[in-house]
Design a protein around this nucleic acid. Structure first.
Length: 541
DNA sequence: ACGATATAG
DNA sequence: TGTTCTATATCGT
């Protein structure tokens, strides 16, 4: 017998845990409760909040030649995302068009919404996905509030948003769900089981309703919500009632020999491409495997894949594996097809891992034009580095170490388009020179120097030929190293390493030699130990 | 670290 | 289909 008992202190109570880790004796860990929030037509909403008169008009946000998004009034009149501007004007001549190529205000609005929601969620367990989506792990809030329920008067319940202040919260009716459910609402049980998953999801649906109503009435953004036990299910079920709605995926979550769970019933009807994590590439591989045809546009659902003869983790690994795909993809996707997703909510970082600026062009085939555009991009990039990486006391919170230039060559006329989709971007990178961190210099001067001394050399490596035509330029800084003193004391194990870094990384004068590493005798660049072999190959060519 | 691929909104 | 302007994760080297 390998029974293992231990004491753990949670919320000021001491409880005894008896059982073994990863043995059949271990009681199943209570499932997490996850909310998904998706702001409705986010870019359009930012303009509507700025200018409320736009709310009643058909509104489209333009980037280059296309409508990137539009409000629901515009959709009622036949407009949709990613439509050509000229088509939009023809279909709806009185559409109001606003320019959305500068993302600054979307980024700012997104951050404001994120901070507002994060302030509500215990432990700050909020993950941002793009500008307009959030995942919330509200397990602790829900379990606390389920415990606080009075089973004799569920209709007059109070949701506690603060453990310390019992007046902080809102009243709600815990005898029914807030918003919609999948499947559509059955009759509520007369004596609900307060410890059930269903009750926890019901309480979570009211928290979701509260958050959405706060977002709408305090700052004017409507959002669509999903309530379930994982990021996968919360996101998928949320999209059932759009816009400005919410949906809870009801139990049972476990199938029986007699009947599929609601998870399977819900997932099975979805086209595979709709499943988060299955992009166009994997969807095509699965369609090809099931239909036997290279270019098949037949609808293939989760059920079709799940029940296909021979299907399983091993088969999926063979179908989906290959260059570029993650290892273990087969079992991961087999889990996904059964609604099993154990991925954690990743709390928002303090710092981005990269900053990039890009623009696209109808024609870009002279070096002078390219140089001009690279200076424009460099200016934006340095400004963004300053707004995102410099703190209130004018100190760099982090130093990017790498500068990368990407281009997208225009496909030669007459080449096949639909065949095999490829990303068609190519890139080169160099160490980011230290002078870009000089805050006293003008952005324009720094941008000129950066293009002259770093960017053009990458461009020549990308396009040594005389003839080219580019449809896109992208400039990025990556490989950010936090400044000493910026990082919190996280755990004891990291303290030593921080101290070593602090000695090497002279905290205020970074300057032209970014890192103390092994400097290459040929080119002078600092090379990390594991990359020395690759770097020698570079010189050997 | 580099350069590419895949996925996401 | 890709059109836009990003961002993250992961692969082989």
């Amino acid at each position: 017998m390998d029974i293992d008992s231990q004491f753990s202190t949670v919320l000021g109570r001491t409880s005894i845990f008896i059982g073994t880790r990863s043995s059949p004796n271990t009681p199943a860990m209570a499932q997490n409760i996850i909310l998904h929030l998706d702001y409705d037509c986010f870019y359009a909403s930012v303009f509507e909040v700025e200018q409320p008169a736009l709310r009643s008009l058909p509104l489209a946000v333009q980037q280059k030649q296309i409508v990137v998004t539009c409000n629901y009034e515009a959709r009622r009149r036949g407009l949709h995302k990613l439509q050509l501007i000229k088509d939009a004007k023809r279909i709806c001549p009185d559409v109001v068009i606003v320019l959305g190529e500068d993302l600054t205000k979307f980024r700012n609005a997104s951050k404001e919404l994120y901070l507002l929601v994060r302030a509500l969620v215990w432990g700050g367990r909020v993950e941002k996905l793009g500008f307009d989506e959030l995942f919330l792990d509200v397990t602790e809030m829900i379990d606390y509030n389920v415990e606080m329920l009075n089973p004799n008067d569920l209709a007059h319940s109070f949701f506690h948003l603060d453990r310390q202040d019992p007046t902080e919260g809102f009243i709600y009716d815990a005898s029914q769900f807030c918003g919609s459910t999948f499947p559509v609402t059955e009759v509520a049980p007369a004596t609900p089981d307060l410890s059930s998953l269903g009750m926890r999801l019901l309480v979570a649906s009211h928290l979701q309703g509260h958050i959405r109503s706060k977002l709408e009435h305090q700052i004017g953004f409507t959002a669509t919500g999903g309530i379930s036990t994982s990021k996968l299910l919360a996101k998928l079920v949320g999209s059932v009632h759009k816009p400005n709605g919410q949906t809870t995926l009801l139990p049972p979550y476990e199938s029986t020999p007699e009947e599929d769970s609601n998870v399977l019933k819900f997932l099975d009807e979805h086209e595979i491409r709709k499943i988060p994590g299955i992009g166009s590439r994997m969807a095509q591989k699965l369609r090809t495997h099931l239909t036997g045809k290279e270019d098949s546009d037949e609808k293939v659902t989760v059920r079709d894949v799940r029940l296909f003869p021979g299907m399983g983790p091993a088969s999926l690994e063979k179908i989906l594996g290959g260059p570029g795909s993650a290892k273990g993809i087969g079992s991961k996707m087999w889990n996904v097809l059964h609604g099993v997703d154990t991925s954690e909510i990743l709390e928002g970082r303090d710092l981005p891992t990269q900053i990039s600026i890009e623009d696209s062009y109808g024609r870009l085939d002279t070096l002078e034009a390219v140089r001009r555009e690279l200076v424009v991009l460099s200016r934006s990039l340095i400004r963004r580095m300053r707004t995102d990486l410099v703190d209130e006391t004018s100190r760099w919170r982090a130093h990017p170490r790498t500068l990368r230039l990407s281009t997208r060559p225009r496909p030669p006329p007459g080449s096949e388009t639909g065949r095999t989709y490829q990303s068609n971007r190519i890139s080169r990178s160099v160490p980011l020179p230290g002078f870009v961190f000089h805050l006293e210099e003008h952005v324009d001067a720094l941008a000129e120097r950066l293009v002259q001394e770093s960017v053009l050399s990458m461009f020549r490596r990308l396009h040594p030929d005389k003839s080219w035509n580019l449809s896109l330029l992208n400039l990025a800084v990556t490989n950010l190293v936090e400044s000493a003193g910026e990082q919190q004391s996280r755990d004891i194990g990291k303290m030593f390493q921080q101290q070593v870094e602090a000695e090497v990384d002279v905290s205020d004068e970074w300057d032209d030699e970014p890192l103390a590493s092994l400097d290459c005798v040929l080119c002078g660049y600092p090379i990390p130990l594991f990359a020395i072999e690759a770097h020698q190959m570079y010189h050997a060519q």
